[in-house]
């Protein structure tokens, strides 16, 4: 069981280098295609971080982190079309709605643990896919769902006034992602982080320390849902129109847990790696490697294979440490 090492999870120097590169270098050397990819990588790494935090730090496996991601995306889009609120406020509202729904769902889900929690959250992801499949993502129409009835009403999702272009929106995304990572760090380094470490290791011991277990699990669920919800809003701004439900499907839910585990759940690097795996690596393969389309189709197999290898390896590591019988 890899445990929590604060300084490892957040190496300020290396992070500063990455941020400077992302903000000042990347936008000028990459073309529109790769900038969009990198934007989505940043978005996805937030979702990966939220799922990784639940698993690695609190010991809760949610296979349904795509749900708050989708909810945040939908809410942000709907409000963007319906109101003239500033974009960051939209993101905030999207995150809060996702967190509230996440908590409401978390209440029953957190009464169970382990396998049951994983299965229930996967089923909730499936339920969301059904709901989103019926509702569809807003695209400028009116009414509750905000879906247009005639194509001439189709409108793109707006971006913040100061980040209209792709490179500017990429910078904006990196900064918001960074703020979300900081938020997670503040929680992890403080009272909730210590409580989560106790809960993860042993619930009886956590109770004996006076920790209200359900309350702290709910806080974790809400924080993770908030992060994923804001990421959903960022995603909406990056794609701008005709968002399909692929990103938020059951398949995406399984895919997410695979890349999160492959990247590693204990550090920020794991989340970035997960973002890289899912948003950049495939395009690199299809663009530059022999085989092209082959890689796209076999991506799922590739990640299935990676997940299996990861599980086998972590089993070996646990055996080495004598953690298994």
């Amino acid at each position: 069981m890899g445990a929590i090492v604060k300084h490892k999870a957040f190496e300020p120097g290396a992070i500063a280098v990455i941020v400077v590169f992302a903000l000042f270098v990347a936008p000028s050397i990459f073309g529109a295609f790769w900038i969009t990819n990198l934007t989505q990588m940043a978005v996805f790494s937030v979702v990966a971080a939220s799922a990784g935090m639940l698993y690695g730090r609190v010991g809760l496996v949610s296979l349904g982190q795509v749900a708050p991601y989708g909810i945040g995306c939908w809410v942000t889009m709907r409000l963007a079309y319906a109101t003239s609120l500033p974009f960051p406020v939209l993101l905030l509202i999207g995150g809060i709605v996702a967190a509230v729904i996440g908590m409401l769902i978390g209440l029953p889900a957190l009464r169970v643990s382990g396998l049951y929690l994983a299965l229930v959250t996967l089923m909730l992801a499936a339920a969301l896919e059904t709901v989103l499949g019926v509702l569809k993502f807003p695209n400028g129409g009116s009414g509750f769902s905000g879906v247009v009835t005639s194509l001439s009403d189709l409108a793109p999702m707006r971006r913040p006034g100061f980040a209209e272009t792709d490179p500017a929106y990429f910078r904006f995304t990196v900064i918001v992602a960074l703020l979300l990572f900081l938020l997670a760090y503040v929680f992890l380094a403080g009272k909730p982080g210590r409580a989560w470490a106790s809960i993860r290791q042993s619930e009886p011991s956590a109770i004996a320390a006076g920790i209200a277990i359900t309350q702290y699990k709910l806080i974790a669920f809400a924080l993770a849902a908030f992060m994923a919800g804001v990421a959903g809003g960022l995603f909406a701004g990056s794609v701008q129109q005709s968002i399909g439900i692929d990103q938020f499907s059951r398949q995406a839910a399984l895919f997410l847990i695979a890349v999160v585990l492959m990247g590693g759940v204990h550090t920020l690097w794991g989340a970035l790696l997960a973002g890289f795996f899912s948003k950049v690596m495939l395009d690199l393969l299809t663009s530059y490697m022999v085989g092209g389309q082959f890689w796209n189709n076999f991506s799922l197999s590739l990640f299935g294979f990676g997940l299996m290898m990861n599980l086998i390896q972590s089993t070996k590591a646990m055996e080495k440490k004598g953690l298994l019988g």
């Binding site: 069981m1 445990a3 929590i4 090492v5 009272k191 210590r194 409580a195 470490a197 106790s198 993860r200 290791q201 042993s202 009886p204 011991s205 004996a208 320390a209 006076g210 920790i211 209200a212």
Partner: peptide, 23 residues
């Protein structure tokens, strides 16, 4: 506890702090 339950991932100080801040 019979099998000690000190929290592996926290420092000694944080271990004890965790109990204090909740009680």
């Amino acid at each position: 506890f019979q099998t000690e339950q000190a929290i592996e991932g926290l420092s000694v100080f944080d271990n004890v702090l965790t109990v204090y801040e909740h009680t």
